[in-house]
């Protein structure tokens, strides 16, 4: 089984996670730029973070046989901090990179005027750079926030099929699919969405334009939730081809719209002897 996790924050995960993910079939991931547990207070710490998403993390992933891509943006929560706003001015430099396959995560956290402005501006950057957009939907007041997000997407002029709205649930999936955009689901141990609920959504809404991710990060989460959802789908009677569509072909189709999803690229670390060793870090 081949799995593409379209949303996972590997920066927060260990090499054990990479090994376990590879063992269950994960071969490619997209890591969206987002907030961290600790709020940042200056643009420079964002640039270092973006550098890690473009440098260290793909390097680490490659040593475990996993292709790593990322999305770049100023996230909605930190868009509210005037000290972080200058990040918006430097985004074009990062959106030009080979491994950046979307603008994201953008969207709403508390639905403030600052978030409105950052969302609209970054949807504009996506259009300008020919990139898809990964849009986070808020945890609080989700249905209203999702409706409002869809309005802003419509007003921005970006093609709906270039937009993925994430962290959806039973009450928000319908409006997103009706809009022509892609619907993302984050399978979490306790919150957001479970494997069994996900299976029920697939049974009700079909498998077109639906993505499943683990969204694993620094909180309570599980980087193997993609595989566990695939297993739940099989147990519920979905065939292997349908599982492959949801867990591989759909994310490839969505991020492939960037023209930068080079899955055949040679592994940058072919000559390394990482087998039986830990990640190389120049001091072992």
């Amino acid at each position: 089984m081949r799995i593409f996790d379209p949303h996972i924050h590997m920066t927060s995960r260990t090499t054990d996670d990479y090994e376990a993910m590879h063992a269950v079939g994960v071969r490619a991931v997209v890591e969206p730029a987002f907030w961290l547990g600790q709020p940042r207070t200056s643009p420079d710490s964002f640039y270092d973070y973006f550098d890690a998403l473009l440098g260290w993390e793909p390097y680490r992933a490659a040593q475990f046989g996993i292709q790593h891509f990322c999305t770049i943006a100023l996230n909605p929560k930190e868009a509210n901090d005037p000290r972080c706003r200058p990040v918006l001015d430097e985004l074009p430099r990062y959106l030009a990179k080979d491994r950046v396959v979307a603008v994201g995560e953008i969207g709403y956290d508390s639905m403030t005027p600052e978030e409105d402005e950052a969302l609209a501006l970054q949807l504009g950057l996506a259009v300008e750079h020919g990139l898809p957009a990964l849009v986070h939907t808020p945890h609080r007041d989700k249905a209203t926030g999702t409706r409002r997000t869809l309005d802003v997407v419509r007003e921005s002029g970006i093609a709906p099929e270039l937009v993925l709205l994430d962290h959806l649930n039973e009450l928000t999936v319908g409006m997103v699919l009706d809009s022509g955009s892609w619907a993302g689901f984050s399978i979490y141990p306790r919150t957001k969405m479970s494997e069994d609920r996900m299976v029920a959504i697939l049974q009700e809404h079909g498998t077109d334009r639906i993505l499943v991710n683990s969204a694993a990060d620094w909180g309570r989460s599980d980087p193997l939730k993609t595989r566990k959802t695939a297993d739940a789908m099989r147990a519920a009677g979905f065939d292997d081809d349908t599982v492959d569509k949801v867990l591989w072909r759909n994310p490839v189709a969505f991020y492939g719209q960037s023209g930068r999803l080079d899955l055949d690229e040679p592994k940058p670390d072919e000559e390394s002897s990482f087998q039986g060793n830990s990640v190389r870090r120049g001091g072992e």
Partner: peptide, 9 residues
């Protein structure tokens, strides 16, 4: 270099 990915650096 500062804003480059590893291939650019």
């Amino acid at each position: 270099f500062r804003h480059g990915d590893p291939a650019e650096q």
